[in-house]
Design a protein around this nucleic acid. Structure first.
Lengths: 219, 219
DNA sequence: AATATTATTTAGATTTGTCTAAATTATATT
DNA sequence: AATATAATTTAGACAAATCTAAATAATATT
């Protein structure tokens, strides 16, 4: 199965977003890939044709077994290159994503397996995410952190540690719910407040109390 | 100047083929890139637009100073990756070209400069070709070898060591002249004859006597 | 110099991946 | 249940890179 870089990016995004969820929405993929929902629909048809995703109009998208297999290969490549950049070329963990984003599309099993060996067959990348082995086996993904301690820019809300209705009400009003993707725009040291942004809405700031109680995972 | 992978491949080929020559022909580029002359004409218009080549209809193609600068960057990336693959990942010199062909398109100066440093700032790649430095300085290209000793598959005729008219006549009849690109199809041990192929013609075999007297360089 | 051959370009089509704007379907709210 | 809002899809367009077939220009041969 030979994929273009664009197809690989879609497969990888669907894999990232699926995680637990039964299906992934068109909009979520569009947001993740910084493209338009119409483009996602177009690509969904192609990937369905190739039997890499299950897709029915308006019903969301999920990977097939084959799609998942390929996704794991791509994730493996990406994370191994991140290791290489950090361990061997002395990049810092926050600089490597973009470059790995390009390197991951170089398709050569031999290359990747030799690279893995060269790096000492690492099992996690510099961000703590697990690296699938050559057979596609991957250990459990990172556990959750509270939003005030998270380091990544793009996060997904995975739970709340305080179930008080006042917090839930606040979150609801702000449009934050389980699975919502947020971008951290800025962290203000003087009061540990965090400026975040959701999908199409303008950015807003939340207090430390709130951010301590939102559990997130990196995407 | 941001180039697509396709544009980079054209620039690199033109650089390779130019070497001494004043201009490069549409056909030569098409052959080098395994594409059609019509496609080369199309791309020539784009690259002229971007001021990377000088090009007038029917008059051949040559790099501008800016084009040459970019070509050297691409060559640098390609050759450094080849070094990496051979020195660090234990590939053999004949396996690396294809993979480096993909890696070379990952555009990040920082990446390439760090890679160079990591490899000990090598000045030649595993095939003996010189690696341009970060400023685009490159030492003279490899000296010539006789065809019977050459190892690469694709070669360019750069001279003959025997100037006898019988040899020149033979070469002329076969369509071999200075600058002709040839592909080595097979080398036969029992008599050291070499089967070669030129552009659009069927393959043919030449004897050891002849191949000893054809001086070639790798492209 | 006329003709044949080869090289190159043009015209028009195709594929991939994307987009905008409009239409449709699903979901939420009253 | 009706209506408003949000999500998704369709239709039609576009740019990049390529192709084939036909036309044109350059070069070689007689």
């Amino acid at each position: 199965m030979n994929l273009t870089a664009a197809e690989e990016n879609y497969i990888k995004s669907i894999y990232k977003l699926q995680d637990g969820q039964a299906v992934v929405s068109t909009n979520a993929i569009a947001y993740e890939l910084d493209t338009k929902p119409a483009s996602v629909t177009d690509m969904a048809k192609k990937l369905k044709e190739k039997k890499l995703i299950d897709y029915e109009k308006y019903q969301g998208i999920s990977l097939t077994a084959e799609g998942r297999r390929l996704a794991l290969q791509i994730v493996r490549r990406h994370r191994l290159w991140e290791c290489f950049l950090v361990d061997k070329l002395a990049f810092s963990w926050d600089e490597v994503h973009e470059i790995a984003e390009e390197l991951e599309h170089v398709r050569s099993e031999k290359l990747i397996n030799r690279l893995s060996e060269f790096l000492g067959n690492p099992t996690t990348d510099p961000h703590g995410d697990p690296i699938p082995d050559a057979q596609g086996k991957i250990s459990k993904s990172k556990q959750l952190v509270s939003l005030d301690k998270a380091t990544a820019r793009r996060l997904e809300v995975a739970g709340v540690s305080d179930q008080s209705s006042s917090l839930l009400e606040f979150l609801h009003a702000k449009g934050i719910r389980l699975g919502t993707q947020i971008d951290v725009i800025e962290r203000y040291e003087f009061d540990n407040s965090v400026e975040i942004k959701i999908r199409n809405q303008p950015a807003f700031t939340i207090s430390e109390q709130v951010s301590k109680n939102i559990m997130v995972k990196t995407l």
